[in-house]
Write a protein that binds this DNA or RNA. Sequence first.
DNA 1: GCACCATATCATTCCCCGCTGATATGTCGT
DNA 2: ACGACATATCAGCGGGGAATGATATGGTGC
Lengths: 114, 114
Amino acid sequence: MVQIVDDRKSATIERRAKLFRGFADPSRLAILGALCNGPLAVHELVERTELSQPNVSNHLRCLLDCGLVASDRDGRFIRYRISSPRITVLLSDVDALLDVVAEGVEACDNYRGA
Amino acid sequence: MVQIVDDRKSATIERRAKLFRGFADPSRLAILGALCNGPLAVHELVERTELSQPNVSNHLRCLLDCGLVASDRDGRFIRYRISSPRITVLLSDVDALLDVVAEGVEACDNYRGA
DNA sequence: GCACCATATCATTCCCCGCTGATATGTCGT
DNA sequence: ACGACATATCAGCGGGGAATGATATGGTGC
């Protein structure tokens, strides 16, 4: 009984953490940010983010598995897009929060900004 | 010139990533979640989260430096609280997003759920 | 001042994850 | 079918950070 409650609680927390981790990487954020302005093919993402192509593909796979982006084949290109407007909402929430805490976040050296 | 733009862009991304990383940990999420229901002292957080005391203190330091929580001394206790309602907004938006992508997130094994 | 409780700090260990380089798969024009 | 481009996959390396255990600091009441 208690365990069920605890499991539920921790399962929720784990899921949140895992989702947050999906956003907690500069490369993935760069990709998501680029896609916020409309769908893009992989090589376009490579150009704009200045990341290596395998790197972009790896992150896209991750984002795709997580359901954060969707893909459509278009000829020999594969076009990726944001899967839900809620993602955009989340990103703007973060910016709103940064308006308040940016200073502290930058100062915090418990973990490194890559 | 171009570098300035790039620096600005990447600086923004880095800051977002760093903030997201602040939330991308089950222990910190447990602490923040507990604090969402009102201020708590450290030993109360230890009870509710079932984390070790040093662990809680370490994370609190991190959250404090980042400006995500604030603290007030109360006798020999130190009471911690959420610093901004925007944090609560962020957390509930994550849950809203999870309503859509929870399945995919759990399935994604590119990185591990702790 | 002394025992006690609450909280903070620090070093160490361990593991996760992101990047790279090479290679495989796939799709299109000719 | 072949060559060129677009994308995916995989092994291996390297670094960051979370948890622990021991210890230090600080406030409280007697």
